[in-house]
Design a protein around this nucleic acid. Structure first.
Lengths: 343, 343
DNA sequence: CTGTTAGCGCCTTCAA
DNA sequence: TTGAAGGCGCTAACAG
């Protein structure tokens, strides 16, 4: 008869197997100290009782929670966050480590996280994914008491894995230049919320770098701000109203680029015939829609981050605490040579 | 000086506040048994030490884990799963309950979940989201020992919140009929993996119901199977090759519908001029692309499920254990009257 | 190789 | 209104 509730506990397993709970614990964790036959007996008993270990009890006793946190900015269903969470999950599960999400989608959640510190004493490591932190916040994270891994942002002295946003944007814009475009616009999604712009600024930097290198004076480097991810129509209108409209647009996210693509179709125009369009990310929809883009291997980045977190949680000292993952320009059907207008 | 590690524990707070740990515990939980001034003193001390409660310790002692699980089928970044997880998170966080994800994306994960039962003794309640379960699996879940809430699937005797897939599809197809279409095809995304088709079958049922009601004989009810979400081109090809091609397509998911839309554009055709297109879900991209669809309020469904789970976790008996959420047909720019061809 | 013995940090009676 | 004490289920020395 089980002890407290109707779940079998280790004591029950121990009784059934005719050993002590310590032995059960060892056997369940595959300790080599336990003889093969005892282990088998314990496993059979556990199976018999549908025993599942109590993670809280084991966490309390061992000091290892068996849980890693991911701190994300914005909604969980965004392409980036979803991809990251999925990839981290994939990496943690085989290691029998659970995933806890901490979301910071608005000011309130931000305050809550940094004042209450729900990650404290609650995860073995924390992956901080891709959103701007103030210096004060970074300091506070440091004092959290858990190992940190930064994802898509580099911080000196802290393990991190990131893509090179500058290089990614530069390569993308270079590809457009290579197609013959000279007048290229860069569209930046600027949320009004401070601290939520991930790498947007660095991508603009990459754009400017490529353009300058190509001999386009800074004053001719057109940067358009998009209010949010649904501002496709506005962006297109702005761009078309330009006295010298661009023949290509590099956009800092696929989600926004797709909105612009839709606006284009709606306006009776076509990509790349009327305007070349290049996104950034390689969202699942990008391939489906034939959108050219600068692909960032988010799953790979996230997987690396998870591996790092796992190592840190285990008390190991990683030999490559900071990883840089390359992006890749993928030209599909929305980019081509510039139209040969009168210009 | 803190006891074991460098995190403050309740004992430290108690010492600083000059009270017992029992009082600290009560004060932190807002017990009315503690005097206002004592509470204030404790809170101040906790703040001073950046104290955060150890959830494992409190979970072990109280028997309440403060954690609710969500079991999802397929990748976390899919529209549905992402939306559900986000909404559940939103509902749980204010209640200070954490979220643990259990993903079943393939056969291996399925086996793992049902044999190891990682949710056992590890969450206070489990939300089972939208994927087909075998009878054996359902039984096994029942014996899990935690309250269950089914999301988008109805099970007698188990609390659930779901949309009416049959009615949703029927309404959508009726809307197409209302536009004048008679020859309508239904596209069903059939993964080859058994048990992973959520509501696909029920949506076909809704389609048939609407068509039959409109007097279209069953033999004229065209149902096309899509290999996966990226099979837009194939589906379009199949449909166009039909001796009597449909003038409208009802698709059982927006993600697939978008792929078909892209295939259409690629083929030099247009919606709705050449073919009307109706999705299902109301994916974020649907609005962006102007896709007509049967909107299912996934956040609302998920929020309701989370509320139910919270109540069950607290030991309450919900008075409305089963909730049915209505869908809504949203006609945007991909649907219109059928082309008046010679036929 | 296995058992015994202390806790891990908190919650919860029971007393006061 | 507060404190003392026991125990939640497991792990980790320490014996044997």
């Amino acid at each position: 008869m089980p002890t407290t509730d109707h779940h079998a506990s280790m004591a029950d397993v121990a009784r059934l197997a005719g050993v002590s709970v310590a032995t059960v614990s060892r056997a369940l964790h595959g300790s080599p100290l336990v003889s093969a036959e005892t282990t088998a007996r314990v496993l059979a008993a556990a199976e018999e009782l549908s025993f599942a270990i109590s993670r809280v009890a084991s966490g309390l006793a061992s000091g290892r929670l068996g849980r890693i946190g991911v701190l994300v900015g914005g909604p969980l269903q965004s392409w980036f966050n979803g991809t990251v969470i999925d990839a981290v999950y994939s990496r943690l599960t085989p290691a029998d480590v659970e995933l806890t999400i901490f979301r910071i989608a608005d000011r309130a959640e931000r305050d809550r996280f940094f004042t209450r510190l729900p990650a404290r004493r609650n995860v073995d490591a924390l992956i901080v994914a891709s959103f701007a932190l103030t210096a004060a916040e970074r300091t506070r994270l440091q004092t959290l008491g858990v190992p940190l891994v930064y994802l898509n942002q580099q911080v000196v002295g802290v393990p991190s894995v990131a893509i090179d946003d500058v290089a990614g944007a530069r390569d993308g814009v270079s590809a457009l230049l290579g197609l013959g475009h000279r007048r290229i616009g860069f569209v930046r999604s600027v949320g009004r919320r401070p601290g939520f712009r991930y790498s947007a600024d660095r991508r603009v930097e990459g754009f400017r770098s490529a353009m300058t290198e190509a001999g386009v004076p800074e004053s001719d480097q057109l940067v358009v701000d998009a209010r949010d991810l649904d501002a496709g129509d506005e962006v297109l209108a702005t761009v078309l109203a330009d006295p010298d409209p661009p023949t290509a647009l590099a956009v800092d996210s696929d989600e926004l680029a797709i909105g612009i693509l839709a606006a284009l179709v709606r306006a009776g125009l076509r990509a790349p015939d009327d305007l070349s369009l290049l996104g950034f990310d390689d969202h699942a929809m990008a391939e489906r829609l034939g959108l050219s883009t600068v692909a960032q291997p988010a799953e790979r980045t996230a997987t690396e981050a998870a591996s790092l977190a796992l190592a840190l949680a285990a008390g190991e000292v990683p030999d490559h605490p900071t990883v840089l993952v390359p992006t890749r320009v993928v030209l599909r059907r929305t980019t081509g040579a510039p139209p040969r207008g009168p210009r």
